[in-house]
Design a protein around this nucleic acid. Structure first.
Lengths: 196, 196
DNA sequence: TCTTAAAAATACCATTCGGTATGTTTTTTG
DNA sequence: CAAAAAACATACCGAATGGTATTTTTAAGA
């Protein structure tokens, strides 16, 4: 029972890439089995429905990525404000899996699925909550260490920063250029400095 | 030639509502003709393809709405920073067409269509450009009148503010609650105040 | 090694999709 | 009013959709 899990993982990874590029609804099972070269029988052996696969993508692909790329960097950097800024800078400018023309996978998923599939909604909410917690904790850390003012509302700032990130990803998609990222990052820095 | 245009408008309006709620791809022609009680023959008399209708929605429904709800309020309010804040407050908290659970129609459209349909992309880009110009002009106005610091980069601030709006709309969808709007608006005010 | 269950392949299905062909009914206009 | 064009109605089409039933192959454990 090793090759089977490999097959399953291949499906999840390739499907994720397709969905990231094309969207969930417009990525058909036939698309997926064509690019993975896995037959329909194999696909439906591993997943009861398309939505079960979608959920598996969120939990088994997106979640680990979130931890590695969105949360860990916050914890390794010592200065909290630098941590947040550098995270965004890395995600937007340096990460070479996330493409400007395709936006942020989690954000795309949310926009597409959230009003209609409550299971997706729940899974995506958990994802976002984790990121929220991590950013909030980073800010609280800064308040304790004195690098951030004590009157700063950590949760509010987190929401503000997160919304900026999601929004600029969407704007980047529209303009298909990282130029807007640069503008965003400059103002983000100014905003973050105002929390000192 | 009057009833015909009414039919056309009905299709556009009802289709827009459906798309706002369900998304473009998942709203079928059959959905549209069912809710409008217009036959397929009538539909295809007015629009060659579904995409032609989609474009018409952007240009004939979204664009006027943008002007009325997103741009004009900026020009009537005298204080520029108040204008921007009040605009966002109205859009997020008071506007009763835009629902928190469905997000922002323009943002939804962009997220869904922009990498795949260049015509949609172009139309949506024009839309966004108009809003960008209006906000930028408002900030420049503030710089001239002295209510905004001269060293403020108007274009950058515009991008930052817009991305926040789009992002918080998406976050609102996810949480299905205006609570996040309140947090966002508080931090927006703080950010805008820092431009004085 | 042989059995048995897991894993994968094949062929098919009902439904829905966007779109068309061909009418019929209204309006407009000369 | 009559003719012609505009506006709408009906029936249908091929392709694609998510999913299933059934068979075949592969691999694990006794």
């Amino acid at each position: 029972m090793k090759k089977a899990e490999a097959t399953r993982l291949t499906i999840l990874q390739k499907a994720f890439e397709l969905i990231y590029v094309k969207g969930y609804q417009t990525t058909s099972i036939d698309d997926i089995i064509a690019t993975t070269k896995v037959t329909k029988g194999a696909f439906y052996y591993h997943f009861k429905t398309k939505d079960e696969m979608g959920l598996a993508i969120i939990n088994e692909i997106l979640k680990p990525t979130l931890t590695n790329s969105f949360i860990e960097p916050l914890q390794t950097e010592e200065n909290p404000l630098d941590a947040i800024y550098n995270l965004m800078d890395n995600l937007l400018m340096k990460n070479d899996f996330l493409k400007v023309e395709y936006g942020c996978p989690a954000s795309n998923f949310t926009q597409e699925m959230t009003p209609w599939n409550s299971e997706f909604n729940k899974a995506l909410n958990e994802l976002t909550q984790e990121w929220t917690k991590a950013i909030t904790a980073t800010i609280e850390r800064g308040k304790k260490s004195g690098t951030i003012r004590k009157d700063v509302n950590a949760k509010q700032v987190t929401i503000f920063v997160m919304s900026g990130y999601w929004g600029i990803r969407n704007l980047g998609k529209l303009e298909n250029s990282k130029k807007v990222y640069v503008s965003y990052l400059k103002q983000l820095k100014i905003y973050l400095d105002s929390l000192k």
